[in-house]
């Protein structure tokens, strides 16, 4: 009985509305409705694609060794860093530097919006402010910031809209959910075949818009997981670029809790 009454009242409302509108208005509203529905659908698709990428990249844990080479904008000699990285599903990550020798043993623990840096020779640990995470990693430089080296999920960090599509790619536009993050917005090009990002442009108001661009290439299978073996971050303002090559990777392995404990990661 209740349902019938509701339907009746809706019919009544529709009838009243129709009677009150002329035809051009009706067409206009119909178009608006289609556009709004399409936009809403695109929003959902954008976020869904981001979630899909997160889902495919999600692991309970990972241990990776990668080589990072920094190519200065002025053509100066490239610098090579070798980093052991440990991550777990909640986003905590630990980066330990094996090369070069000047910073060998330096460790960066990222958890939530916090990072701690451990300097092995002095034994000191320094807490890094969230705002400092936009800066390049101390003693390393390059175009990756502390935040870039930390872990996170796209769908949690950004609200995505599907703003473009070709036969082979989707283009997602993401706006930062948290004002404390380094990047205000990103533009991600995703391979439909691989369901993985191929290119990401990063923007921040502080930097005057898009200023960093990350490309992924040479996707390979690492113990059952598809990962880009080459990533390149290019600073479009300065012309410098930093290339990362994945040397080894293992996923869903057991990692000791102490690696991610701020009071123990230096031990």
């Amino acid at each position: 009985m209740m349902n019938t009454k509701r339907i009746d009242s809706r019919k009544k409302l529709l009838c009243t509305t129709r009677c009150a509108l002329n035809v051009p208005r009706l067409v206009f509203l119909a178009v608006l409705l289609v556009v709004a529905t399409a936009a809403s659908f695109a929003d959902e698709r954008g976020q869904a694609i981001a979630r899909r990428i997160d889902q495919l990249e999600a692991t309970t844990s990972s241990r990776m060794r990668f080589e990072m080479s920094i190519h200065p904008a002025d053509g100066g000699e490239r610098r090579v860093f070798v980093i052991d990285s440990y991550e777990r599903a909640n986003g905590d990550s630990l980066a330990s530097f094996a090369e070069p020798r000047t910073i060998r043993g330096l460790r960066i623990l990222s958890s939530g919006n916090n990072s701690w840096v451990f300097f092995p020779s002095t034994g000191r640990i320094r807490k890094i402010a969230g705002s400092s995470r936009s800066g390049s990693v101390q003693g390393v430089g390059g175009d990756f910031s502390y935040e870039d080296l930390g872990a996170g999920t796209w769908a949690n960090d950004f609200d995505f809209d599907l703003t473009g599509e070709t036969d082979e790619t989707w283009v997602l536009s993401g706006k930062a959910k948290n004002a404390d993050t380094v990047y205000d917005a990103i533009l991600m090009t995703v391979s439909k075949k691989l369901e993985r990002p191929m290119r990401i442009a990063f923007s921040s108001v502080k930097e005057g818009g898009f200023w960093k661009e990350l490309t992924f290439s040479d996707y390979r299978d690492y113990s059952g997981r598809l990962r880009a073996s080459v990533m390149e971050m290019r600073n479009t303002k300065t012309g410098s670029r930093t290339m990362v090559r994945l040397l080894e990777a293992a996923f869903d392995i057991r990692l000791e809790d102490r690696l991610f404990d701020p009071t123990r990661f230096d031990k």
Partner: peptide, 9 residues
């Protein structure tokens, strides 16, 4: 103790 106040450590 160490902490943050805005952009300051």
């Amino acid at each position: 103790a160490s902490g943050f106040l805005g952009a300051f450590t």
